[in-house]
């Protein structure tokens, strides 16, 4: 059954699509080996299916939903639009790498407190996107927040509780700049 705690999944057995490549990725500060991967695999696929990191979600495969958002060299990207084999020597940070020693980040906690989570499929991507926004723009107005998360589709919430969560983190960080994570 699903076991995401295992550090790495065994490569699928012998048969592989013809054009393969072996490379190494740096994910959440750790070097991860990717042996014999088909050249066309996205970073999203490699993280999820080869490296046991399913936090980035696959909902559209075309950069329209933001569910697979993560950082590559500090830049917010859709990992479905990143060729994994081209992400070597980049610093990849996923939602799994946001927390600090098992503690929730302020954004994660605010999503829970505001009731922003329903089915939750879009939530890991949104968490990364909101971190990116508030780290760059500490005091966004509502329209800026809406634009910043406009690439993260959510079908359950109508965004209301998500906007509330962003506002809560913003105010908390402005009130206590040292306390933010």
């Amino acid at each position: 059954m699903s076991d995401h705690s295992s550090p790495s999944r065994p490569p699928p057995s012998a048969a592989q699509p013809s054009v393969t490549e072996t490379y190494e990725l740096s994910v959440n500060g750790r070097a991860r080996s990717v042996p014999d991967a088909w050249i066309g695999e996205s970073l999203l696929y490699v993280l999820r299916e080869r490296l046991g990191l399913p936090g980035a979600k696959n909902a559209c495969e075309q950069g329209e939903c933001g569910s697979c958002s993560l950082y590559v060299d500090g830049v917010l990207l859709n990992s479905c639009c990143v060729l994994a084999a081209d992400a070597v020597d980049a610093d990849i940070r996923t939602v799994e790498g946001l927390g600090d020693g098992g503690h929730l980040t302020d954004v994660q906690q605010a999503f829970l407190d505001a009731g922003a989570v329903q089915c939750g499929f879009c939530i890991p991507g949104l968490i990364v996107t909101v971190h990116d926004l508030l780290d760059r723009v500490p005091d966004p107005d509502e329209l800026q927040v809406r634009e910043a998360i406009s690439g993260n589709l959510c079908r359950c919430t109508g965004y209301g509780r998500i906007l509330q969560a962003v506002e809560d983190v913003k105010l908390a960080r402005l009130a206590d700049p040292e306390g933010s994570s």
Binding site: M1, T94, Q108, L112
Partner: peptide, 24 residues
């Protein structure tokens, strides 16, 4: 609070698309 809230904000919650089995 939702009992599944924390795994859903950390990415640890297993959706059906996240499932995996040996020799799959």
């Amino acid at each position: 609070a939702r009992p599944d809230g924390t795994p859903k904000v950390t990415g640890a919650f297993a959706f059906s698309s996240d499932l995996y089995a040996q020799q799959m």
